[in-house]
Amino acid sequence: MFEDTYQNLFASSNQIAALSIDCNYYIVISKPIYIKSGSLRRIFKNVQYDTYENQQLQDFKIYLDSIPVEYLKEVQNDSVLLRFLYTHQFVKADTVNYFVDHLNWLNNPETMNLEDIPQYSKLVQVIGRDEMLRPVLHICLNLPLDDLFVKAISNKLIIMEDYMFVPGKVESWIIIVHLSQTSQNIKPEQIDKPSSTLSLIFLCLQSKSIFQKQI
């Protein structure tokens, strides 16, 4: 169902190939500086990790084995574990706390109910990709950012990750937040708390947010 709905936004096989061999993308995507630059890693799948990262992964798996939370031991995917470690600056206890919250959210049956919420269908839209094939989400913030609005956003982010990412090449997104005139009447706390919820859920996925204000 979702594949049909977003078929026009999928990266074509030619586009994916161009990320590796076309000169326009090769310079940006394939060089190590894009994959990993200092303390920032953008690509986690289908790439080699350095000595420090491999050691951190090994230490973290040992740490997980010492924790009496059984389902944590089921997640031994290196790309997932390393992404979470980077998110929390390799602090194991903080990573585990986030991991538990994230997996509890992921295991909630309501999380995977990805049906459109009609009143937000025009406010939260996947509008295409940027020049690096990262999916772009446009959010028109002209209603309070309540739990239902947050759910509409998280639904789209899940779909973008599941159907629009390309492992080893496209592992992040662009988010454009359009602040309409009515947004000026929204109290800061109406944005801060839901934004914190989204950060908790999707913190481990690198994103770039652009805010546009209507004049």
Rank of each mutant, 00 (worst) to 15 (best):
N108R: 03
L145Q: 08
N142P: 00
V100Y: 00
P118N: 03
K61M: 02
M132Y: 11
D59V: 01
F165L: 04
I117N: 04
P109L: 13
Q55C: 08
M132A: 14
V91M: 05
L137C: 08
D147E: 05
N155Y: 10
Q48H: 15
K151I: 02
R83C: 12
I159R: 11
Y49C: 11
C140L: 09
F60H: 05
H88Q: 02
S66P: 01
D65Y: 05
Q56H: 04
S66F: 07
D59T: 02
Q76T: 14
M112Q: 07
N108I: 08
V91Y: 07
E110D: 14
Q119F: 00
F90C: 09
L103Y: 14
I139W: 00
E74K: 15
V124F: 02
K122A: 04
D65M: 07
F149H: 12
V166G: 01
D101T: 06
E171K: 07
L141R: 06
K169V: 01
D130F: 07
P68C: 06
S79V: 11
F165K: 06
V80P: 00
D147I: 12
L143R: 08
E70V: 11
I117F: 02
L106H: 12
D78I: 04
L143P: 00
K151G: 04
R83P: 09
Y71R: 14
Q55K: 15
P144E: 09
Q56T: 02
L114Q: 08
V75Q: 12
I139Q: 01
A152D: 09
I67D: 00
V126M: 13
S121W: 03
D116R: 10
I159T: 03
